[in-house]
Design a protein around this nucleic acid. Structure first.
Lengths: 187, 187
DNA sequence: TTAGTATTAGTACCAGATACTAAATGAAAT
DNA sequence: ATTTCATTTAGTATCTGGTACTAATACTAA
């Protein structure tokens, strides 16, 4: 994929684009791709303020290490700030643009749902599975940066079934409500 | 956090534990922590088959790079295998244990929901926001390893509102159904 | 005391850089 | 055609966090 006769401006733009899409490229590989010397690539990076390969890899690793742990590894989405086991609970989720659609900056419903679901499960604290849900409603869109405050309440317990209501608000305004039916699991 | 008078066996066990929980530790830091020389740490790593810091960081970065992109970066959860814009769509999601609760191996509802929601949005393909949802139902638990096949159908369009039904099956068995109300966004 | 293991020390080497100096090349302006 | 300045290339010393290897020393159990 050699690109000859490129102006410096073009190369700089293309370079940062490439590194953004693939942060694992060495200066040597980049030098070959652009058909310039390694030194030129280094000068370009210096000019663009792009750190060296190892730093890039490290930051990808660090960013994701925490993010992956907190988004997919952890059982609770959002921070549990109050818990009254079997009765009620409150969690807070600070959103940012990684939770949102790029174009619109609207937070994806899946994260709001995840906060509600995980809070509902935390309140029960048993080997539960979410089997039924009803009456979910997104009342108004949530934007990146909004701080979601979720409140859960156990409204009824019957045999191994738990009925939990979860409300999520952004600054007093209700943005989501859902009724979850949790079924405790045979051990 | 110095640990003196540890046997080799103890150190080896503790070492791999530490590196597992924090892969960003250099040999030097480890040597200080265990109060042994750097060479000892290197011999230990060699014996345990633990790669060097840079390799560790790189593999964390690579593992997560794809995972994070596909789970939180991408707009669609699951692979879109069929799309009839404005009418219907099918997506497939192969689950694994990263989607599930550790203890029970039951896939978290949030991922199933995310697949359904993102498919519903893909079928509409407009600047939509998910505002209302109704009649969601998880019919039976999904386990890590199950292959989820989601089908979406647009059942009604009224002004800027779209009513989309999504069914998810695992081997002919319906595990989820949901009716989404999507509202197209003012540009 | 000795054998064998564990540990430490030191050297040469590597990748992928930084930081720096110096030279060569190219294009535009005079 | 020559000067001038930006761009590019070349080369050296240095850094980090290692590998691979050899050799010496310390510890421990028989």
């Amino acid at each position: 994929m050699k690109q000859k006769g490129m102006s410096k401006r073009e190369r700089l733009a293309s370079l940062s684009e490439r590194i953004k899409t693939d942060p694992f490229l060495t200066d040597e590989e980049l030098a070959e791709a652009f058909n310039v010397s390694i030194q030129t690539i280094r000068l370009d990076r210096l000019e663009l303020g792009i750190p060296e390969l190892r730093e890039r890899i490290k930051s990808v690793a660090e960013d994701n290490y925490t993010k992956v742990r907190s988004l997919q590894g952890k059982e609770i989405i959002g921070e549990l700030v109050d818990l009254n086991l079997g009765v009620s609970g409150i969690s807070i989720l600070e959103t940012d643009n990684t939770f949102a659609f790029e174009k619109t900056n609207v937070v994806k419903g899946q994260y709001i749902f995840a906060q509600a679901e995980s809070l509902a499960i935390a309140v029960i604290d048993a080997n539960v599975a979410l089997i039924g849900v009803a009456n979910i409603k997104y009342k108004s869109p949530v934007f990146a940066g909004d701080k979601l405050i979720a409140k859960a309440e156990v409204v009824r317990t019957r045999a191994n079934k738990y009925f939990v209501w979860v409300f999520i608000k952004v600054k007093q305004t209700e943005v989501f409500r859902g009724k979850f039916i949790l079924v405790s699991f045979s051990k």
